[in-house]
Design a protein around this nucleic acid. Structure first.
Lengths: 338, 338
DNA sequence: CTGAAAGCGCTAACAT
DNA sequence: ATGTTAGCGCTTTCAG
């Protein structure tokens, strides 16, 4: 870096302290000098050195963004959208974001991201479910953490979450409004807080509408959530001869798999079976029929997470606020009145 | 950051300079003191401050990674894999990587990534095609740049590129080996260096095998490269009544679209038409039939780019080396002997 | 309202 | 082989 605060000071006939105060918009500088200093800053094209600043303020100026490799490499850009939101928001704050992928099967023997070992982040955003071992190791550092779209069971944390419960309610209520009462629920990892809440929404609506909940309507797969597991789940429903006229899939990937299976069994969608998913992924509109779903504001979640960590770092207090992001129903062609 | 080099120095009864030398593995320290210093470093859990280091060495310790938003958010994790490779490789180098997305329609009025404006990166990796305006503005900063999977026409740059020519040759030769001679080529943006070279490979093989090149066998779409454009390209071929028994699609997305169109026209793959793509994306094995393709080492490309920029920064000379990444044929079920 | 000066944590001459 | 010391570029008391 070439030109420094000294150059500016000299040229503007003030001390470096004054220049510093001007840069930092301190108000106890006379309008006149401020103008003059600002002018020479512009003339010289002066850029304060982040490194020097960080050194004296004892901060790194970085926020770490951690997620598992498989989440990052997912075909559907879910977490990448969250990251994008965070990165965009960071531009409004004095932070850069350092992205680090960890293995999905992270064990406590594995290394932490280098930026935490080297104390190079002031705060951390963790997106999606990560192994418990990682979280435990992270505790030893006192770096504030904000979780996005996941949040560990133990402890109380700051987090930006999808309003999964309401999403589940919206989805199933839509089905009920369409006249369905035999509604299947297919999902993966029921331990996951998000899935759990969507399931809860399902049950809530049944209950509210006086529809009897039945175990045979729910298929829980312990495999990875994907199209294939959606396919298999519906296959199981069919094989069991379970009667249903609609299915609520815990996410769109499974919904798409479900559609496929139904079609393969000569069932028409939505005439014979209505299907609703969750997430509003890009592929929803590329399949036939386009999938009705619950939209979640991915980019906004990223920016909210960034805002939250920035606020925590600014106030220097760890708060445990939880932000519930609103979801909404997106009606497309995979659902209809019975 | 808590404990500093001074603490270590005091406890080990040496000067801070000595500690510094030990940290930096300088050899002119006696084995004995080195051991002692290292021991107290471990005991104290001392971590050198990057910020302080960077300040004195006048570097930021960061490498910027720039790509367009749409590349980052692509359904197929192509550039994310490149990024992943770069990030992993960075762990072996004294750099963090800062990721920044720019709009696909970036104009010279738009801002540069903040990290370049603020001089917070020592070097830059640019992945994929980016708008010329960006590149021109970047020139004003003297930050070394390494390009990955793209490289601007004007000027001579360091770059990590796919061996597209050889890939094209491999692909088309495979088709020829299968007995095909009426081979269509469908592609997008022929201005793109990668596409151009793949096309060149196509022509090279025809030539070498004494097959007459014919304009009617090539369909160039100016739309975005995607399944849909693949579909449309084949549709055009069919409408024109062009005879062909095989198609080389410039990438897998188009290949998949092509398959779809052919199927919709009651043609069997590979019995009636063989199809080969390029890239080896995840979806290749999820469609029916699985797509034969040219595999490109995405993760390796990222790490090579990181190695290259690291070397440039280390030697403090901008070199313009180009690294051509090897590709290979992956035979699956979309191609067969005539 | 502005300046002088100390110091953030580290490296790199230069001494010893 | 190791210690002394002068900064790197900035912020921040503390004086004036």
């Amino acid at each position: 870096m070439r030109i420094t605060i000294k150059d500016v000071a000299k040229k503007a006939n003030v001390s470096t302290a004054t220049v510093s105060l001007v840069i930092n918009k301190n108000r106890r500088i006379s309008r006149e000098t401020r103008r003059r200093v600002q002018k020479t800053i512009d003339e010289l094209g002066y850029q304060p050195s982040r490194t020097a600043r960080d050194l004296v303020s004892r901060k790194s100026g970085n926020v770490g963004f951690i997620l598992t490799e498989d989440h990052f490499l997912k075909t559907e850009p879910f977490y990448t959208q969250i990251f994008l939101g965070a990165e965009f928001e960071a531009r409004q704050h004095p932070y850069y974001v350092l992205l680090s992928m960890i293995p999905a099967d992270y064990s406590e023997h594995d290394m932490l991201p280098r930026f935490v070992l080297e104390n190079s982040v002031d705060g951390i955003i963790i997106a999606g479910k990560v192994p418990g071992g990682l979280i435990r190791k992270l505790r030893k550092y006192s770096t504030p953490i904000v979780y996005v779209d996941y949040y560990p069971d133990e402890g109380d944390h700051a987090a930006v979450l999808i309003d999964n419960l309401n999403g589940g309610i919206l989805a199933v209520q839509h089905l009920v409004d369409c006249g369905h009462s035999k509604i299947a629920f297919i999902c993966g990892d029921i331990e996951h807080p998000s899935i759990r809440d969507r399931f809860l929404g399902y049950k809530t609506v049944l209950d509210k509408n006086g529809i009897q909940f039945s175990d045979e309507h729910v298929v829980i797969t312990d495999k990875v959530i994907c199209q294939e597991s959606g396919y298999d789940s519906v296959k199981k429903l069919l094989k069991n001869n379970t009667k249903f006229t609609a299915v609520f899939a815990c996410n769109d990937a499974m919904a798409i798999g479900a559609v496929q299976c139904l079609k393969d069994n000569a069932l028409r969608i939505p005439e014979d079976v209505s299907i609703i998913g969750f997430d509003d992924i890009q592929m929803d509109v590329m399949v036939d029929p386009p999938i009705t779903t619950i939209q979640v504001p991915k980019v906004d979640m990223g920016s909210e997470a960034m805002k939250l960590i920035s606020e925590i770092l600014g106030r220097k207090v760890q708060n445990t606020r939880k932000i519930l992001m609103p979801v909404s129903l997106v009606e497309r062609q995979s659902t209809c009145k019975v």
